[in-house]
Amino acid sequence: MKKAQHTPHIPFAARLLERRDLSEDTTLFRIAPEEGALAELSSFVPGQFVQLSVPGAGEIPISPADLPAPDGTLELCVRRVGHVTELLHKQQTGARLGIRGPFGSGFPLREMAGRPVLLLAGGLGIAPLRSLLMHLLRQRSSYGEVTLMYGAKQPRLMLFREELTALAATGGLRLYLTVDFAPETSEGEYSCAIGLLPDLLKGFRFDAVNTYAAVCGPPPLYRCLVTDLERAGVAAERILLSLERRMRCGIGRCCHCALGQKLCCVDGPVFRASELKGIPEAL
C-alpha cells in the first residue's frame, strides 16, 4: 500500500530475495521493495541512486546494477567495505531492509539516442554502468555502437565476467576486459593500478566526435580518462562521469556530498566533465 503523504526521508520496507557472490567481497543483492515503493522506483534512470537501509546499521547510497525487473525487484551490487555494508553482507535471504529513491540525475538517455556509447568502468564502477549497459542492450537499435572497457585489479576481482562475455557473444556489444595484474605473472610485479584502462583507450579507434563516454571507477581513474578522452576528441559535454560521494540524506540537505557549489545527490551523481571544470575537489 502506498502510504499517504510519503516523505522522501522515510524508507519503504524491502526484503532481501536473493544474493549472489560476485567476488570475495562483492555481492549482488536482489531486493523486493514493498508495493508502495514501486511507482517511485519504476522511474529509475540508469545512473541514479537509491538509499538502501540496513535496519540498526544505517543507510548507504547505491546505484542499482540494472533497471527494476518487471516484478519491481532491484539488483544492487555492494562491496563489503564499511559499517553498513558489513552488516548487509551478513543478511540472509528474507531479511528486512529499507529503500528510498531513486535520487539524483541519471545518464541523458534521450540525448544519447542514435549515438555510439563507450562505457569505461574501473573496479566496482561496473555496477552503476551495468544498468546503463543493460538499458542500451535492451534498446539496442536506438543507439550506435556500444563498447565496454572494464578494468579490474586482477582476474578474480572481475565482476560479471561470464555475463559480459555472453553479452558480447550476441554481437551487440564490443567488450574489452583488462586487469591491472595477473598473479600468474612474476610475483609482486604489476603495472600502475589504473594504467591499463587508459592504455586500452589509447589503442582504440572510434568515432570520437559522436561518441558519448560514460565513466565510473575509483577517484584517480576519472582524472586520467577525462584527459585521454578529450585528447581523443570527445567533447567534455559528452563525457559523463558517475561520481561517488557519501550522500547521507539524498535530497540536497545534509551537504555531505558537496563538490564546489554543486551537490552530488541532486546535481549528480552523473555529471558532464564540462560541468566540473574549475571545481578543484570534483575529481
Binding site: C249, C255, H256
Partner: peptide, 25 residues
Amino acid sequence: CYCFDVREYPSLSGGGTRIREWDNC
C-alpha cells in the same frame, strides 16, 4: 550552518533509531 550527519543505532529489542546531528565541514 546546517550540515548534518546521519547515524543509526540498533536497540536490544531488535528495533533501531536513526538520528541526525550537526556536522562540520
